[in-house]
């Protein structure tokens, strides 16, 4: 197992290089980084432009340029952003921290509630609870986040302040304007609405995964064997049923959580939440190559990492799977 993980991690290095090369080429074609620089700094001297081209690895030859960029990236000699000439690493770190906080909260709430609802529904297939959960999940999946986000903002901020004189939950940012330093209470209040928007989607999807996975397991013959032992129904369900039903769900969850690092682009933008999604959208809008490349590397890395995590958790839960 350890050998497998080490080998997979070793393999992820060439994969990372290859994928980042593709991303590099795509960004150069798609955003034309040199033009973006000239547009934002119209009075830049030719020397400044040449320096910008050099430190970002924007050589007309893509391969040579890529390696120039790679060397700078690995040695942590990251060029500053075009707009505002900011340091990239701290900006990326803040965005990642904000997204991880939102993503973790939404995943924990979403997956927990989703799994519980799925179990609840599967115990009596076709029963009233099952129909209720299925309908709710269908509605939850059908409402896109940009609709639910705006509905929540309307209800909890606009109408709430009209009815009760103040908003229940703030609708944007991590802190109110002017707040400096850490404040847990304010942070949580700002996270409530975006978390709800994201969690609803996750709940709906996982309720359905869990329901169908558990139904599959409940009809299997080893459940009848377990029942034939004369053990309690609860033990049959938890010890024999859930363990098996969770195998596919956990695998999917690992992949899903990995993709959250890519940002909840729509939700973050509606709530002006300074996470990975908002970072990407504004950097992409400006064609800010120095900001975009490290973001891309981070996304590719997290996808690779969570894929590995999915495989490992699969092998850990299911003794039939051998990793070699």
């Amino acid at each position: 197992m350890l050998k497998y993980v080490v080998r997979r991690l070793a393999w992820s290095i060439p994969t990372l290089c290859f994928v980042t090369f593709l991303v590099y080429v795509a960004l150069r074609i798609g955003t034309n980084p040199v033009e973006s620089y000239k547009r934002i700094n119209p009075r830049a001297s030719p020397e400044k432009i040449a320096q910008y081209i050099d430190v970002n690895g924007l050589d007309p030859n893509y391969v040579r340029g890529y390696f120039r960029w790679l060397v700078n990236f690995i040695t942590l000699d990251w060029p500053r952003s075009i707009k505002g000439s900011r340091e990239v690493a701290p900006a990326l770190k803040d965005a990642l921290a904000n997204t991880l906080r939102l993503g973790t909260a939404a995943s924990v709430v979403g997956i927990t509630v989703g799994l519980l609802l799925g179990i609840f529904a599967a115990l009596r297939p076709g029963g009233r609870r099952d129909v209720a959960v299925n309908t709710a999940a269908f509605v939850g999946i059908s409402i896109p986040p940009y609709v639910s986000a705006i509905l929540f903002q309307l209800f909890f901020a606009v109408y709430w302040s009209r009815w009760f004189g103040s908003t229940l939950f703030p609708t944007s940012g991590v802190y109110p304007p002017g707040q400096t330093g850490f404040n847990l209470g304010l942070m949580i209040r700002h996270m409530v609405l975006p978390t709800m928007v994201v969690a609803i989607q996750i709940i709906a999807v996982y309720a359905r995964y869990m329901r169908s996975s558990l139904l599959d397991v409940l009809s299997s013959e080893y459940m009848r064997t377990a029942r034939s032992k004369g053990i309690s129904e609860r033990r049959v369900l938890f010890k024999h049923g859930l363990r098996n039903a969770l195998i596919p769900v956990v695998t999917i969850a690992a992949l899903d959580v990995g993709s959250i690092v890519g940002g909840l682009i729509i939700t973050e933008n509606i709530f002006s939440y300074p996470g990975m999604g908002k970072y990407f959208l504004s950097a992409f809008g400006e064609g800010d190559f120095p900001l975009l490349m490290p973001w891309m590397v981070l996304i590719v890395f997290s996808v690779l990492l969570f894929n590995l995590l999915a495989d490992v958790s699969y092998a850990w839960l299911d003794p039939r799977i051998r990793l070699e």
Binding site: R224, T225, N244, L317, P319
Partner: peptide, 18 residues
């Protein structure tokens, strides 16, 4: 399981794989 127990047809699926 105490006074009366049962052996099933398909031993491949009668045991819990995990």
């Amino acid at each position: 399981g105490r006074l009366m127990s049962m052996i099933f047809q398909d031993p491949l699926s009668a045991l819990n794989p995990v």
